[in-house]
Design a protein around this nucleic acid. Structure first.
Lengths: 223, 223
DNA sequence: AAACTCTACACCTCAGACAAGTTGGGGTTC
DNA sequence: GAACCCCAACTTGTCTGAGGTGTAGAGTTT
């Protein structure tokens, strides 16, 4: 266990070893770690290096060191980062969550969109219609349009969730389009126009349906 | 500015100074900091101390050091925690996001629920029907039932999102029920039974509608 | 102009020394 | 015997100097 494969900084490796042993329950919440000199000898690094590892975990909120007293465990695990969660799960799960967020956001946007929101969405739509985009840029302008829709819902939580999904979805979309380019570009663009129009006409049901239909297609393509 | 009041560890002070100067825009996103020796001399601490300060900020995701190249700014500010975001926004936004998540999860659950999922949901339903619960406990068993529904969707992202909402929603629900207790308890329980039954009968549309209707009621009560 | 080599400089690690703070035991006093 | 004080041992905090390792750009060659 902990094969100690040497990749990269020693201090980072030491931090990983420590975190592993903490997670394994060797030092429970609130308990004190052995002294720096002891631990350094045990792990096989210099004291300064071990101290840097401790500082790194302190920065992550796992450890706290008190001068003269010791180093203590103040949190058993790192608040798992969204990026980490999203990298771990399947892209299908992410798209399903996206459907949930965006369909609801589209419906809310149909209620709440301001003229300014509408202008922003139509601007993004126009940028998306340009056919000369290289692949990555196309994905970016597409995501930008979807973001404008969520922003028009005027719900900060939904927007925050959407932004959390963007990096993962972006990579997956680019991969997918490399293998299988959009065969009917006009229909794809028309679906987006329909979505924006439904929001413009203040038709929540239609907006949600447009969003759901489009993303279900993406879901199928990615699975 | 930055009066350098000496309270506590020097490394922590150095980290604060660095973060302050990063936030002030002295070194923009992606830029390189001056060398360790230069910075240590400038701030007035030893090299090891400065290195520990850098490690601390690296643990917080602000800096990244690359051997042979330098130390770089990779994030202007500390990743804002979900708890912080949710505390800041209105409860209405959170409930709207909850509608999005739970309605979709209910529909997926109607497709994917296993017999074991169903047993768990019915167990939670039975616990919820007990009328002798004190207020906080009632909210907890209610949330537990809702969680079982989301879990039955077998979508890790949706479940993770739901769990993120729980603390904020729990507090708000308790506050709300203190002021305005449920006047028709039987109807409330019946709505939950209907939701579980729709999932049991593999009826996605009905399940989503039950969930949406119930949560919209909560939304109204809380706003 | 492109490819290669090499050097200066960056961060990385270690060891040792001393400073500053905490803890607990032993002695003293009441 | 109980409360108090003092100090010694141990902890983390800081600094310095020495080498190691990796990167990037200048200079050279082709």
């Amino acid at each position: 266990m902990t094969p100690a494969v040497q990749h990269g900084r020693l201090a980072a490796q030491a931090a990983e070893v420590l975190l592993g042993r903490i997670r394994a329950g060797e030092w429970p919440l609130g308990h004190k770690l052995p002294g720096e000199t002891t631990l350094a000898l045990e792990i096989g690094v210099g004291r300064s290096t071990l101290r840097e590892a401790i500082r790194e975990l302190a920065g992550q909120g796992v450890l706290e060191s008190r001068q003269g007293s010791g180093v203590f465990v103040i949190s058993t695990d790192i608040a798992e980062d969204w990026d980490v969660v999203l990298r771990r799960v399947s892209i299908a799960s992410v798209i399903e969550a996206r459907v949930a967020i965006e369909a609801e956001a589209a419906a809310l946007a149909a209620h709440r969109r301001t003229p300014s929101d509408l202008r922003a969405m139509r601007r993004a739509l126009a940028r998306r219609s340009g056919t000369e985009h290289p692949l990555e840029e196309f994905v970016d302008v597409d995501m930008a349009l979807h973001r404008e829709v969520v922003a028009a819902s005027h719900n900060e939580v939904l927007l925050e969730l959407f932004d959390g999904f963007v990096p993962r979805v972006r990579v997956a979309m680019i991969e997918m389009l490399k293998l299988r380019p959009i065969h009917d570009y006009d229909a794809d663009q028309a679906a987006h126009v329909a979505l924006v129009e439904a929001i413009a006409e203040r038709n929540p049901a239609a907006a949600a349906e447009c969003s759901r239909a489009h993303l279900t297609g993406v879901h199928r393509a990615l699975s």
